[in-house]
Design a protein around this nucleic acid. Structure first.
Length: 159
DNA sequence: GCCAACGTTGGC
DNA sequence: GCCAACGTTGGC
């Protein structure tokens, strides 16, 4: 199976790439996705070894801040089963879970994040899901060419 | 803090 | 099945 490429959004005030770097094995569960389109991707499409652009949203400088790798493929989001947790969802049953999550592992933190406005400046990135009007999918597919371009932009900035 | 865009809910 | 009301996302 060919490696696929994804972009995953997080609000850094909730969970940042620096938080991921502090994790014992630099891995974390990616729980709390409560959107069906994103759920389908987590459940069916993200495969171990797939590459991830780690994106900070709803902050001063929205940007791709680094890279991660899918460490565990989709499995039921157990946070949905905990009535005391903010991600609890009574509709999701253990024998028939509504929501799924993956685990991801840090690959690298960019020395210089690639900002949203820099992404918009690139003609070759015009078709990125992230840049489409009204797009707010928190897990979204990325083309290999887009992924490679962004890694190159990050390298260029920190060179 | 504002507000456009989108997703979900629920009455009918 | 329609659609208005509401809640959320996320850039600015």
């Amino acid at each position: 199976m060919a490696t696929k490429y994804w972009l995953m959004k997080t609000e850094p005030t909730t969970y940042s790439i620096q938080d991921l770097a502090k994790e014992k094995k630099k891995t974390t569960t990616w729980e709390g996705v409560r959107n069906y389109q994103a759920r389908n991707l987590l459940r069916d499409e993200l495969k171990k070894g797939d590459r991830v652009l780690f994106y900070h949203s709803a902050c001063k400088e929205p940007a791709v801040v680094g890279l991660a790798v899918v460490d565990r493929e989709g499995y039921p989001d157990s946070f949905a089963f905990d009535p005391d947790h903010k991600y609890f969802d009574a509709k999701s049953k253990k024998d028939k879970p509504t929501w799924f999550m993956v685990d991801i592992k840090l690959d690298q933190i960019f020395a210089e994040p690639v900002t949203l406005s820099e992404l918009r400046d690139q003609a070759s990135l015009k078709e990125m899901v992230l840049l489409q009007k009204g797009s707010r999918l928190s897990v979204q597919p990325v083309k290999k060419s887009e992924f490679d371009k962004i890694v190159k932009l990050a390298e260029k900035k920190s060179a």
